[in-house]
Design a protein around this nucleic acid. Structure first.
Length: 425
RNA sequence: GGAGGAAUACCCAAGCCCGGCUGAAGGGAUCGGUCUUGAAAACCGACAGGGCGUGAAAGCGCCGCAAGGGUUCGAAUCCCUUUUCCUCCGCCA
């Protein structure tokens, strides 16, 4: 959520920055109007309330002194009615303002490249080189079938499309990746591990920005409208500190968390239909940070490096791109996407998205910190990034590690997690 | 799921039946001070936070006793709804 005061006082700048996202933000003109009306009303109603409070006190005093109170009573009756009607209008405006603000995305950072689509994203750096094959490499879904690693067909039977049953070494590899990533993040990168619920309530979804605008992307529980399947561990983990005031000495706070992720993929019909790239349910290890405002851009670099580290250890080629203003997510002020090389796509595919939300989520979720014991609480900045998406990592390994003889080599760092297995053949 | 009980400031806790001098007693913790070579103890003092509005600022005002409504001139106190926690029963991995 944007800062009401900031929007009011920097209206043209706010509009300009929002418009760099390619949306239509004319509706904000209305916001300015009712915001002014609201403040006018507040001045009036508070004056009346102050009068009423004084009179009520007087009535109490008069009663004790056995004086006549009938005149005072009459006046107060009138005032109460006025107060009520003012209050009702104020509440109505509050709702409208809240609604407007909840549907308005974050301001892109001023340094983010401007652009209208992903074509304007900027490549920042590259690691490794895509393998040159002297044979036709198989896509991971064919390899999965060949070695009986995943059963898509039966997954379709027991659930539906875009679900998978991992089997045998395939299941073990998925499990190994989760543990491997968590171990690196907790042991080397000093993240604190959380294992959160896979179901969250509406307030949590609102806090991180999935709601109210993107309700159709989420899986809602049928028998409890207040419950949603988590689209990412970002939601439970960031909301872990909702409505809290943190101690500045503890910042930055860094969490890593594994969770299954559930996405309706409402607008993705026909895209990535084969393999595990786009599933309704997938596994992910997520990194989340809460920090002081002045640290957040430094922390974004650190967090992105932590995610990259996993790919480096797995020796998978990847690149880092910076999203342009038009491609930014709703809540983000700046985002780096990490893309892994996938032979089956003959290109790079997103495997992690690392974002700085500045105080946008903190404002929605009401997460603050106190600089010093007597100071005013301030909003923290929140960040997160995948570290990494497990299914896509799985696919990248299967594809990138296939050999001329048709076998698949297990990356060295994973072998301890695979019971020493070196090769799938 | 059924039956009871509870929710007050950082923590404990009084007030609620009988609405008004409670913008919330008392204690603990914390902070400052006196005393002390230093510390402890004792004593003295401070201690509601947060949001909103207004103002150049100091300040002033509004809202706060789980949350949301209602009754009333006036609600921590009365009424309704919701949430959370506890105890017992049932069911269950």
């Amino acid at each position: 959520m944007l800062d009401t005061k900031y929007v009011r006082e920097n209206f043209e700048e706010v509009k300009r920055r929002l418009e760099s996202r390619n949306g239509d933000f004319q509706y904000l003109d209305k916001y300015i109007e009712i915001d002014q009306e609201r403040r006018n009303l507040i001045v009036k109603v508070e004056e009346l309330k102050a009068q009423k409070n004084n009179a009520s006190k007087l009535i109490g005093q008069f009663k004790r002194e056995k004086k006549d109170i009938s005149l005072l009573m009459k006046e107060m009756n009138l005032d109460s009615k006025k107060i009520k009607s003012f209050d009702e209008r104020i509440m109505q405006i509050d709702d409208e303002i809240r609604n407007i603000l909840l549907y308005t995305p974050n301001l892109p950072n001023e340094n983010v490249p401007r652009g209208t689509s992903e074509d304007n994203n900027v490549e920042i750096r590259k690691f490794g080189k895509p393998v040159e094959y002297n044979f036709e490499p198989l896509p991971h879904w064919d390899l999965a079938e060949k070695f009986d690693l995943i059963d898509f067909e039966r997954a379709g039977k027991i659930t539906g499309s875009r679900f998978a049953v991992y089997k045998n070494i395939g299941a073990k590899l998925e499990r190994a990746l989760i543990t491997f990533m968590l171990d690196i993040h907790t042991e080397q990168n000093k993240y604190q591990e959380l294992l959160p619920p896979a179901i969250v309530n509406r307030d949590s979804m609102l806090g991180t920005g999935q709601l109210p605008k993107f309700e159709e992307d989420a899986f809602k529980l049928y028998n409890n409208e207040n419950y949603f399947l988590v689209p990412t561990a970002e939601v439970p983990v960031t909301n872990y500190h909702r409505d809290e005031i943190l101690n500045a000495d503890n910042l930055p706070i860094s969490y890593c968390a594994y969770s299954p992720c559930f996405r309706a993929e409402a607008g993705a019909a026909g895209r990535d239909t084969r393999g595990v790239i786009r599933q309704h349910q997938f596994n992910k290890v997520e990194l989340v940070k809460l920090c002081k405002p002045e640290d957040s851009y430094k922390q974004l670099e650190i967090l992105t490096k932590h995610a990259e580290k996993i790919l480096q250890l797995l020796e998978l080629p990847y690149r880092v791109i910076e999203l342009c203003s038009g491609d930014l997510g709703f809540s983000s002020a700046k985002t780096y996407d990490i893309e892994v090389w996938l032979p089956s796509y003959d290109g790079y595919k997103e495997i992690s998205s690392c974002s700085n939300f500045e105080d946008f989520q903190a404002r929605r979720a009401n997460i603050k910190f106190r600089r010093d014991p007597k100071g005013k609480p301030e909003f923290v900045h929140t960040l997160n990034g995948s570290g990494l998406a497990i299914g896509r990592t799985w696919a990248a390994i299967i594809e990138n590690y296939q050999q001329v003889d048709g076998s698949i080599v297990i990356p060295k760092v994973l072998r301890p997690y695979m019971g020493g297995l070196e090769i799938i053949k």
